[in-house]
């Protein structure tokens, strides 16, 4: 187990080192995320802007589109110069590659959230202090499930000829149940002031578990050098 964890961290650390050096992905998704928040904030007008609901919805849009870009970019690193074949040749389980990529994607999405969320707080006057832990719990649950699916489909789409935009088309419908559950929980938490229920969180965790297990199992089958 320790060996597998070490291998996962190796793959993930390599991705993050490449990102730290090139800053291609984070720069791009940060600009996209901020643009989405600002443009939608301006477009919704002052009435909507003061609603916490609008803020969470807009944040989700920014996270989803930014996330898809993260998934594409981290897999594109492997496609350059056939690096993925080098990983596939190595004496490691294919699941290690999946888990390493998933952690890299989660780290990038977390960085995106740290940049975009304060912008939404300022832009929408969104009162995060009402339930900061609830916000973090819902977002974490949503991120894990979304990244689990996104990492899987990014690998599948990257081996096809039609990459541009295809990932979003595939990932958004599959992750829709997760997004609906997350936004419903946000509505109750920030719109109606209800506390975060155990049922909602359990459903979110169940979604995450299903997506993670299925993705881990399927990843080997869809991976092509």
């Amino acid at each position: 187990m320790t060996r597998v964890l070490r291998e996962i961290m190796l793959v993930s650390a390599k991705d993050l080192r490449i990102e730290a050096r090139s800053r291609q992905t984070l720069g791009l998704v940060a600009v996209l995320g901020v643009l989405i928040v600002v443009v939608l904030g301006l477009g919704l007008g002052p009435q909507q802007v003061k609603s916490g609901m609008a803020a969470t919805a807009v944040l989700w849009v920014a996270y989803l589109f930014g996330g898809v870009l993260c998934f594409e970019k981290t897999m594109a690193v492997e496609r350059h110069d056939g690096a993925l074949a080098g990983l596939m040749l190595a004496p490691i389980d294919r699941g290690v590659i999946y888990a390493g990529k998933l952690i890299s994607n989660l780290a990038l999405m977390l960085a995106l959230a740290l940049i975009v969320t304060p912008v939404a707080v300022v832009m929408f006057g969104f009162d995060l202090s009402a339930a900061p832990l609830g916000f973090v719990a819902i977002m974490a649950g949503g991120f894990v499930g979304f990244a689990a699916i996104g990492t899987l489909f990014a690998a599948a789409v990257s081996s096809t000829q039609s990459q541009g935009g295809l990932l979003a088309v595939v990932v958004f419908p599959v992750s829709l149940p997760l997004v609906i559950v997350s936004t419903q929980m946000m509505m109750r938490l920030f719109g109606e002031g209800e506390p975060l229920g155990a049922v909602g969180l359990t459903v979110l965790i169940a979604f995450d578990a299903v997506y993670l297990v299925v993705s881990w199992l399927v990843f080997e089958l869809i991976l092509e050098p």
Binding site: I18, R21, V77, H80, D81, G82, A83, A85
Partner: peptide
């Protein structure tokens, strides 16, 4: 050793 180098260009 493949057609492609299987290396990371940013490392």
């Amino acid at each position: 050793i493949g057609h492609q180098p299987m290396l990371y260009r940013d490392l």
